[in-house]
């Protein structure tokens, strides 16, 4: 009986892609994206020196995403205003009948110190709330660390194989100018979706995650 189909003898193996060189046609390769991690980093590819709880020994962080730095402008503006309020009061005091004269100098000094300590605490709390709102994409999973109002902490993770789709929206002039937007990672079934708010370079992030999902699917089939 003649053979209907004969498999080729020399099956060529697909070249293995390193995670470091992971790239798509439409997005920048990871090596071209910012890779220096510092205090104000909000989008870093292949960050070095960052680790998280329950990280596997062979698990490598590929993307590090935080809210865009520009989203901090509101509290930074309020803080600057707070810093200048005592100076404004000091300048305006002679025109308002020196209403602080009944207090001894040391009282004013101590209250001023306490006031600036409150302002410093306000700045610090806002900064570290931004600092610890992190999304990580590794070669195995996606991790979302939500932290707000000092008392709310939520750490969620999902395997790349469970991610079904990734999309982003970038609405508004400010978001277009500063190139940031919301990324939505949809997971399978009843699992929670992941929502990375105000992520910088959302297009690149989405392409990188899509590449990873594709790679994971290929690994699952083979």
């Amino acid at each position: 009986m003649p053979d209907l189909f004969i498999a080729p003898l020399n099956k060529q193996e697909e070249p293995k892609q390193s995670d470091d060189l992971l790239m798509s046609k439409s997005s920048l390769p990871l090596t071209e994206l910012p890779s220096n991690l510092h205090l104000f980093s909000s989008f870093v590819a292949n960050p070095r020196g960052i680790h998280f709880q329950n990280q596997d020994s062979d698990e490598k962080v590929l993307l590090f995403i935080k809210r865009d730095l520009i989203t901090n402008i509101v509290w930074v503006g309020i803080s600057i205003l707070f810093i200048f309020i005592p100076i404004i009061i000091a300048v305006a005091s002679p025109f308002m009948g020196n209403f602080l004269n009944f207090l001894p100098g040391r009282h004013i000094f101590f209250y001023l110190l306490l006031y600036y300590l409150f302002v410093g605490t306000y700045v610090f709390v806002n900064f570290f709330t931004w600092y610890f709102n992190i999304a990580l994409v590794t070669n195995k999973r996606i991790i979302d660390v939500d932290f707000s109002s000092l008392v709310y902490k939520n750490v969620a993770a999902t395997k790349l194989s469970l991610v079904q789709d990734v999309s982003y929206d970038q609405v508004g002039i400010v978001r277009s100018i500063f190139d940031y937007g919301d990324i939505l990672v949809q997971t399978a079934g009843t699992l929670d979706n992941f929502h990375f708010e105000a992520a910088p370079s959302p297009e690149n992030a989405v392409h990188i995650i899509q590449d990873l999902i594709g790679k994971e699917a290929r690994n699952g089939l083979s």
């Binding site: 991690l37 205090l39 070095r48 020196g49 998280f52 570290f128 000092l150 902490k153």
Partner: peptide, 14 residues
Amino acid sequence: QVFAMSSVITDAFD
């Protein structure tokens, strides 16, 4: 909270 969050995410320097 700073110590709690630092144990979740460890950054080498910051």
